[in-house]
Design a protein around this nucleic acid. Structure first.
Lengths: 240, 240
DNA sequence: CTAAAATACCTGTATGAACCTGTATAAAAT
DNA sequence: ATTTTATACAGGTTCATACAGGTATTTTAG
């Protein structure tokens, strides 16, 4: 699923190993402060010699992602924001000014059998997070986003009030769920009455819609996101 | 005075070896990112000298199929899946019947300083290929596509009548130009008068627009494509 | 119970062998 | 005359091995 950057295809083994470990660090699978496998364990894992492993670790150290101590091991020192695998997704370019306000419409647990059917899920329970963005000045409609995260045993017992926006994905990471690959659809649809009301628009207004399904490496659905974007404010962009 | 640089190689052993390996790469038997046999192994496999093998590999490298690193080896950089012409997006034709007709609106050499400026090109000359697709039954508008290929020395001397649709990209490949990466923008725009007339639509009708810049591995612009898609016929979809 | 010693595991360093591509050159084959 | 072969060497990469020294745990001796 996850492909190596094309620039590194012809690079040596140390660089390839460094990239794999860097990805694990930046994705949060190796958290800040966590200890890496020992060099000998990495030797067995990657089936290379220790000098090759050491060159890879040395590169990670040079990039400031880890530090290593004699007699102890290597530790993750990277404490930057976990990048939620932005690579591959289209990026929404907001043409309009910056004075937009984001409203959280709801954050609760819902049941959506239709969506569960579409995604092939047994349980129809989801965490629903809906947000809308409107212009702060005149209440212009900008965008609305429906996020649906399937209820899984790992997060089932959490208090709902613990589900704050920022911490939601962190909670998923702690539960061992990491985004790996997905699908995306883009089309143009007419706003339905409900969304139109939220955005103070006429029902039937044409909006740019993107739908994304994010899955773990094992193929488990992590999140389904539907975004409705005002076409006069947004363009989608992606590199490949 | 046809000093075909390739003539020296066209019928020799290096070319034959290159063709065999190219077939293995394009057929997927040698996958993207895979490491080729070492030069010495290839020497034994083809029962030729190393310099002959090296000429073959050098030709594959020129064609953008492999890259090689000293001390390591050669790797396949050609990715059969990707991008190439449709840029990874499958333009899902859902509601439209299969009976769509494609008209070639024009195929000629034009000068477009504005586009050249945008793409950062010195020469403003492009090969322009415009095509429209409409429903065969009622003339319904489906899509229109503007393709612009920068004029390069390698194809400058070709007779224009050689520029048939299908053979155009083949010509670029022969010139050693292979699509590698690019950028894409997606937005919703109102049809201008010209395009609306071509598609028998009202000017101002909202269409889904995708613009793509496709580049070679070296970053050279290969093609700029603007597609206008009837949103009632198209949804864009991709996996990653 | 305490302190020293033995043990196990860790990183740091160095080495030579084997294999890789890059380059040059002269002989042989077509 | 051009292509191909055969050979040699330079320099990068990787592997396998060995040893030195730091750190932590366990064992042993007092």
């Amino acid at each position: 699923m996850r492909r190596l950057a094309s620039a590194s295809i012809a690079s040596g083994k140390p660089e390839k190993i460094a990239q794999i470990l860097e990805d694990e660090i930046r994705s949060g699978r190796l958290a800040h402060g966590a200890q890496l496998q020992s060099e000998n364990e990495l030797v067995r894992r990657f089936a290379v010699s220790r000098s090759t492993i050491r060159k890879g670790l040395s590169e990670l150290s040079r990039r400031g992602l880890i530090t290593t101590s004699v007699g102890i091991g290597s530790f993750v020192t990277f404490d930057g924001n976990v990048v939620a695998d932005e690579a591959g997704w289209t990026e929404a370019l907001e043409k309009a000014g910056a004075n937009a306000v984001t409203r959280t419409l709801r954050l609760e647990i819902i049941s959506d059998p239709s969506l569960a059917e579409t995604l092939g899920l047994e349980s129809a329970e989801f965490i629903a997070l809906d947000r809308a963005r409107t212009n702060a000045d005149d209440g212009h409609a900008i965008s609305i986003e429906h996020s649906r995260i399937p209820m899984i045993p790992e997060i089932e017992n959490l208090p709902v009030r613990g589900l704050r926006d920022g911490s939601l994905h962190a909670t998923l990471r702690e539960a061992g769920l990491f985004p790996d690959h997905g699908e995306e659809w883009i089309d143009v649809v007419a706003l339905n009455a409900e969304d139109a009301a939220i955005l103070s628009c006429e029902p039937g207004t044409m909006f740019l819609r993107t739908r994304r399904v994010i899955r773990t490496r094992e193929g488990q659905v992590m999140e389904h996101i539907t975004s409705l974007l005002n076409p006069s404010h947004f363009a989608l962009h992606r590199e490949f």
